[in-house]
């Protein structure tokens, strides 16, 4: 089999100018960077305040906004074939399933843990 493509192959002439990927504008990359630094500052500042049960949610919420920005703009998911974003979101879904089901099981044992902790005090 010939391992080279001849110029007459359907791709070469017509697809030579097809861009391989979107080039993200400089302005957008710099804006995303500024937003990420700002969110980092916010999450550090906010950690000195007590929101009670919402402490973890606030920290993880900000982290998720930052992660989304990185994935959409730095990792080009917004501009690329939606298939990549789809498999990434599915993976995150499985991560949630994994964590969620494990946590459901873990809280089942929480009363036992409490009983044990009381007994060691």
């Amino acid at each position: 089999m010939d391992h080279t493509k001849t110029p007459s192959a359907p791709n070469s002439a017509s697809q030579a100018d097809v861009p391989l990927a979107h080039v993200v504008e400089l302005r957008i990359l710099l804006t995303v960077f500024a937003a990420l630094i700002m969110l980092t500052a916010i999450t550090v500042a906010v950690s000195y305040f007590d929101f009670g049960a919402f402490n973890l949610s606030v920290a993880l919420g900000v982290a998720t906004i930052k992660a989304t920005l990185v994935a959409l703009y730095f990792m080009h998911l917004r501009y690329d074939n939606a298939f990549y974003a789809t498999i990434f979101v599915i993976a995150v879904g499985f991560l949630g399933l994994f964590l969620g089901i494990t946590m459901l099981d873990a809280v089942e044992y929480y009363p036992d843990v409490q009983t044990w902790q009381q007994s060691t005090r």
Binding site: F49, K66, A67, V70, A71, F74
Partner: peptide
């Protein structure tokens, strides 16, 4: 390689609040 580096950043974005920012 860029994608890999961004993922490393992404994981740290979660590790930082989970380990350092606990109230």
């Amino acid at each position: 390689v860029g994608l890999y580096w961004h993922l490393v950043d992404l994981i740290w974005i979660y590790l930082f609040p989970l380990l350092y920012l606990i109230h």
